[in-house]
Amino acid sequence: MSGNGNAAATAEENSPKMRVIRVGTRKSQLARIQTDSVVATLKASYPGLQFEIIAMSTTGDKILDTALSKIGEKSLFTKELEHALEKNEVDLVVHSLKDLPTVLPPGFTIGAICKRENPHDAVVFHPKFVGKTLETLPEKSVVGTSSLRRAAQLQRKFPHLEFRSIRGNLNTRLRKLDEQQEFSAIILATAGLQRMGWHNRVGQILHPEECMYAVGQGALGVEVRAKDQDILDLVGVLHDPETLLRCIAERAFLRHLEGGCSVPVAVHTAMKDGQLYLTGGVWSLDGSDSIQETMQATIHVPAQHEDGPEDDPQLVGITARNIPRGPQLAAQNLGISLANLLLSKGAKNILDVARQLNDAH
């Protein structure tokens, strides 16, 4: 009898209710805020589980004197976190989706994509230029951005401005803007500013005609071990179906173009009346040469937790077992079709030249 009692006690200790789920994140304040929001949602869904947040620095956090596009290494903000995932030191990792490459290392998958916040870019102005827009900034004003995508589009749109690289986390960039006289304004992701509670610093939100956004911008991705079915089931509740389908289309477009950090590629997606609209573009580094096109596809946005595919093969690095396969494939095909259209119009040449120029500098 006593033996059975011990077995029952052991089973209770090993039951999922007692389990601590370890969540990996970057150390920056924004990353911690984003991770806290994901953990809060998981806690609400699984009140019996405990969650421990483990923060670590990544290569991208450490190399702050070089433009991201020049470092010449993929997975700048993800490699150390993936290493911890691989060694079973954490069970899942919360990322900004735009930091996750469209091809993940073997053994990993994006197990959830959370509801997207505003994906557009924002302009934050130096205190002396508050009330201005990019259009009304004085001639030769210097605007800071760490992104080739932003610089290429904005140089084309605002030729009277000069664009220079600015690195560091959000706090560091804002301090550089406010305390030094080098920059009249800087460009940042609206979602990051909003998550930090800095709505009052948003001086201008850039519309798609001015600057399309990065693939996955404004959404959070939760990376897990691809074979860890328990954790895949656990994080599945975080999937937002519309965000998922938009981001599958965007990531398929980028992957098929073979774009990345070192080339200016941008997108804009919208879901309306059962249609998914995808606009994508590529630019030369100075913005003088560009190709942009829009395509659409009829896609039914499923309700969360309709029964999805059981075999769960990944699409552009994403596993969404609780979302039907048909809409996911339709979104992926839309991204591939748009990429093929741009490639047929000469996108590869623009991107190759951009890559060579970026590598040469």
Rank of each mutant, 00 (worst) to 15 (best):
C261I: 01
R325G: 14
A84S: 09
Q304H: 08
R149Y: 08
L278M: 06
L154Q: 06
F158I: 12
E209W: 01
C261L: 00
V202H: 03
D65Q: 07
R175P: 02
H120P: 03
D178P: 01
A214Q: 01
V90K: 01
Q296K: 12
L64C: 11
V265M: 04
Q292L: 13
I71C: 10
G197F: 07
K272W: 15
L174N: 05
I350E: 00
D233W: 03
E250R: 01
I299Y: 12
H199Q: 05
L338T: 09
L76T: 11
S57F: 14
S165L: 04
D312R: 12
G221C: 12
T298W: 12
E209S: 06
G335Q: 04
K79V: 06
C211G: 07
T172E: 03
S288G: 13
P309S: 09
L351S: 07
F158H: 14
K132A: 11
G111P: 03
H300A: 02
E210R: 13
L234M: 07
S288E: 14
D312S: 02
Q50H: 10
F129W: 01
R325F: 14
I323C: 11
L97D: 01
I291R: 15
G281D: 00
S262F: 00
A266S: 01
T109W: 06
R325K: 08
L174S: 06
G60I: 00
L134F: 07
E210T: 08
P119V: 10
S75A: 13
I113T: 07
G281C: 07
L81N: 01
E86M: 10
T243I: 08
I113G: 02
C247S: 10
G72P: 14
M212S: 09
L234V: 14
V123F: 01
P105K: 11
V124L: 09
R201F: 05
D121E: 07
V235C: 03
K43I: 13
E82K: 06
L351N: 01
G236A: 13
I71H: 08
E135F: 11
A347S: 15
V301P: 01
R246L: 10
G274C: 05
V123C: 07
T145G: 06
Y46F: 12
T136Y: 11
K74R: 05
F129Q: 13
L276I: 05
I166D: 00
G221T: 07
I54K: 11
F108D: 01
L278V: 05
R246S: 13
E210W: 15
E73W: 04
R116A: 08
T172W: 05
F125M: 11
S141D: 07
H126V: 07
E89K: 09
L92Y: 02
P241R: 02
A214V: 03
V38S: 06
V282C: 08
G221M: 00
A84C: 08
A152C: 10
L177V: 12
L64M: 08
I291W: 08
N322H: 09
A270P: 01
V282L: 05
L334R: 00
D240Q: 13
H199V: 14
Q50S: 03
P313Q: 07
Q356L: 10
H256S: 11
L338W: 01
L278Y: 01
I113Q: 05
E117W: 12
V124G: 06
Q155C: 11
V90Y: 06
P302A: 12
Q304V: 03
R150I: 02
G168Y: 02
L92F: 10
V265D: 02
E306N: 15
I205A: 08
A189Y: 01
E135Q: 13
E306A: 15
R355D: 15
L329I: 13
L68D: 09
Q275K: 12
S284N: 09
L137V: 11
A339M: 01
S147H: 00
M56L: 13
E242N: 02
L341K: 12
P105M: 10
A214K: 03
T58I: 08
A249V: 07
Q356T: 03
Q275H: 14
L193F: 06
Q155F: 11
E82H: 03
K128P: 02
D233V: 07
K74A: 09
R321C: 04
K98W: 01
D65L: 04
I53H: 01
R255P: 03
F129P: 00
D289K: 04
R164W: 12
P302I: 03
A214S: 07
V224D: 01
K227E: 15
I187E: 03
V94D: 03
F108G: 07
A214W: 00
T102L: 08
G168H: 03
L238S: 04
R355L: 11
V124Y: 00
Q194K: 12
K348S: 13
P119R: 04
H300M: 02
P324E: 03
L134Q: 02
C211M: 15
H126Q: 12
N88V: 07
L170G: 12
H268E: 15
P324S: 08
K70C: 08
K157E: 07
L134P: 04
K176N: 06
D352L: 12
L97E: 04
P159E: 09
G281E: 15
K87D: 13
P159I: 08
H160P: 10
K345V: 05
T78C: 14
H120C: 12
L338A: 15
E293N: 09
C114Y: 07
K157V: 10
E306Y: 05
K140E: 14
G197N: 04
F183L: 14
E310V: 11
K157D: 08
I248N: 07
H199L: 09
P47F: 08
H126I: 15
Q153T: 05
M271Y: 15
Q155W: 11
E89A: 10
F77N: 02
V215F: 04
G72R: 07
I299D: 11
L285G: 15
T78P: 02
M196Y: 12
Y277S: 06
W198Y: 11
R167C: 05
G203M: 02
K62S: 10
S96W: 00
A151N: 12
S284A: 15
T41Y: 10
A252E: 08
T172V: 06
F125A: 05
L97Q: 00
F108L: 14
F253M: 14
T279M: 05
L245E: 03
E242T: 08
H126R: 09
L188C: 11
C211L: 11
E86D: 10
K115Q: 11
P327Q: 15
L329S: 13
P105I: 08
H120W: 13
Y213Q: 06
M271L: 11
I186D: 05
Q292I: 15
H207Q: 13
V202S: 06
E293W: 14
E139S: 09
L338V: 01
A339Y: 04
L341V: 10
K132P: 12
Q328S: 15
V124P: 03
S147L: 00
V263W: 02
E293F: 08
T279R: 06
T109K: 13
Q204M: 00
E293D: 14
V316P: 06
P105F: 14
I323K: 03
D359W: 13
K62L: 04
T269E: 01
A330I: 00
H95G: 04
I231A: 15
C261F: 05
K132G: 13
V124W: 05
K74E: 02
D91T: 03
E89P: 01
E182G: 15
D286W: 09
S96V: 00
H268L: 08
E306G: 08
D352M: 09
V142R: 12
E73Q: 07
E82D: 09
I110G: 00
S146A: 08
D352I: 02
M212R: 03
V265L: 04
E52V: 12
L341R: 08
I187G: 07
N171L: 12
V235L: 10
V39T: 08
H256T: 14
G280Y: 00
L232N: 13
I110R: 01
S290F: 12
L285I: 09
E52S: 12
A360G: 14
D286S: 07
M271R: 05
E89V: 11
D307N: 14
D312P: 03
L338I: 04
L76G: 09
P302K: 05
A55Q: 10
A360N: 03
L174Y: 09
E310R: 13
V94A: 05
R195C: 07
H300C: 13
F183C: 08
P101Y: 01
R156L: 09
Q332P: 05
G216K: 00
L148R: 09
D359F: 06
I63A: 13
D312N: 15
E135D: 12
V267M: 15
K79T: 09
V353R: 07
H256Y: 05
T279Q: 08
L137Q: 06
T109I: 06
L329D: 10
E139I: 14
K115H: 08
A330M: 00
A112P: 05
G216Q: 00
N322W: 14
T190V: 11
G236M: 02
L81F: 12
N322D: 15
I63V: 08
L148I: 14
L177C: 07
Q332E: 13
C114R: 09
